[in-house]
Design a protein around this nucleic acid. Structure first.
Lengths: 338, 338
DNA sequence: GTGAAAGCGCTAACAT
DNA sequence: ATGTTAGCGCTTTCAC
């Protein structure tokens, strides 16, 4: 494995100069820099991250803790993070908490704390008090994307307000019989977001003087298939049906649309559906939604962390409210009985 | 940041003993080992990966190069890899080639070669000759999962045979008018897989004496929405329609089912559909498919690499053929005109 | 069973 | 603009 000495020898300079030249530091003549760079390339030299990490105290890697990587929101955030990291020549260490048999404690104890990273991004999940303390005790810059956690700055939409807006859209169309498709994800990694969205839903109903119905508070576990099943079960029931459904996310909303089709109902004719996210598939299903931009949230989070590390302009101590806006498609309309 | 010296001092032993004790090496009395372990925990000590990496030459991290993380196959493989790595106390460095604006050369040059990892897993993608050479020149154990690449061992199903089997299932049911939903993914990261699946499709037709029709070779770009659009376009055409569709993957098969519904056609009554993968959503859509198990493929790949590193029993030089088996659901049936 | 000491390959402070 | 040198915090001989 060729090391810095090899490059120095071939170039006829000291290793210090090689180090400076290759990292683009000042005080190296452009002429020698070019020569060194050329030799390094020829030799296939790349600095050892262990060695430079040890010497400089910077690993040039960022940790990303995700509750799962199989949901659109998370993968999209991760892609955004990835793009920012790549620009800054940093690597990403991915800690996936949802892997089946995922020994969560191990993630928090061994790896993350193994000083492998310079900073940490956590995608919306709940920490135990102990976990939070462990994370904060590392002293690395850290930020959450998605769900808010007390004591940690975060980037995310105003969950409650956005859910309320979505529900208000249905009410504005004339709906009063509205079901809520909520529920926690399977791993229970994220309780705050579903809770706040449910509260926002109830806020909207309350403000419009509509009673919520317990039997219309469904659990779709943030999953398309679970939501499809839950809504199918709802539509199987005898008696009154809702004319609209507010789903906590678009995957669930799509599940609701499919369930309506399973029952031979038309959307929005017989049932209106609104979601949150603007998932890749939503346009294809004509799903009306409160759109957010997780890619940019991830990108921004990573860039803030990077700037925290270098004293760049984005560095900050406070949280950031991400935008969400209504996109009207064909899944919502006034109820027929109007 | 507490270091090994702190633990040594508190425990009244040398740093060498601390190192041995904490790593579970022999020649430490159980008594002192317990004491050291306790002190380390109390101090919150965790070894610096840079320092141990530098000293031992092992980073305890594995690189994963993925064409994208937004498709089910990739995320599922990654989850499998993750579970194996976690068991072995290794971390995962994720290199996502598909990130918008993803500067591919940078991934190959800077990061991967930055000696941050002990081994490398690549998920099905095409390498340029230069890239392949760069990767192999690192000398790390390496394996591909998914598409085969000349000169690199891999784990994967027999693409061509599996596609042929899927098509033969349709033919066995009596179909002769079969469309193929193929096409490369958007980034063109993976040409071999779609090509081999198309060949397998043609193999089956040829063996049954069925002429393939150019106008029924569609591109769904490995995407649900693109496939839905492509099949909708097909169904819009005047003239003869296929009675069945073989889709290169389940996401595409689901797109085909949705397109059938868009046209008021019933599946399998008017159109049979078969896919490959056994995607999470496939059961919900009743999609018949050639099931494979990417989670286990990822797990196995990681474990092989780990054993390559340690001389474990799974270490090997040759490729592994992964299994695929037909799962019949409700999307396939004999054509009506029979 | 334990300790002393020599690196691992860099970076950074100080010289020149 | 370039070179010298002292670490960074571990692992790994080699002694004892």
């Amino acid at each position: 494995m060729t090391s810095i000495d090899d490059v120095a020898r071939v170039s006829g300079v000291s290793i210090a100069t090689v180090s400076r030249a290759l990292r683009g530091l000042p005080n190296v003549s452009e002429e020698t820099r070019a020569r060194i760079r050329r030799h390094a390339d020829e030799l296939g030299y790349v600095a050892s991250s262990s060695a430079s990490g040890l010497a400089s105290g910077r690993t040039h890697a960022m940790g990303v803790v995700a509750p799962s990587i199989s949901r659109w929101f998370y993968t999209t955030v991760i892609e955004g993070i990835d793009s920012a990291l790549r620009e800054a020549n940093h690597d990403m260490i991915l800690y996936n908490l949802a892997s089946r048999g995922g020994d969560r404690a191990r993630v928090f104890h061994r790896s993350i704390l193994r000083k492998r990273t310079d900073a940490l991004i956590a995608l919306c999940l709940d920490f135990t008090a102990d976990e939070r303390e462990q994370l904060l005790s590392i002293g690395h810059p850290m930020i959450m994307i998605g769900g808010p956690v007390r004591g940690i700055r975060h980037i995310g939409i105003d969950e409650r307000a956005v859910a309320r807006e979505a529900t208000e859209h249905l009410i504005r169309l004339g709906h009063r019989d509205i079901a809520h498709l909520g529920g926690e994800d399977d791993e229970g990694l994220n309780r705050v977001v579903p809770r706040d969205r449910r509260l926002g839903f109830l806020d909207a109903l309350g403000a419009a003087g509509i009673e919520s119905r317990t039997e219309w508070m469904l659990s779709g576990r943030f999953s398309l298939t679970a939501s499809r099943d839950a809504v199918n079960e709802l539509l199987d029931r005898p008696g009154a049906r809702p004319t609209a459904i507010f789903a906590n996310c678009d995957e669930m909303g799509i599940g609701a649309i499919l369930a309506a089709h399973d029952h031979g109902l038309s959307v929005p004719g017989d049932l209106s559906v609104i979601g949150i996210d603007n998932h890749d598939l939503s346009a294809s299903f004509g799903l009306t939604t409160m759109a957010q931009d997780p890619y940019e949230q991830g990108r921004l989070g990573a860039r803030i962390l990077l700037d925290d590390l270098t004293g760049g302009p984005l560095s900050r101590k406070t949280s950031i409210r991400a935008e969400a806006r209504l996109i009207e498609r064909s899944s919502t309309a006034p109820p027929i009985h109007l």
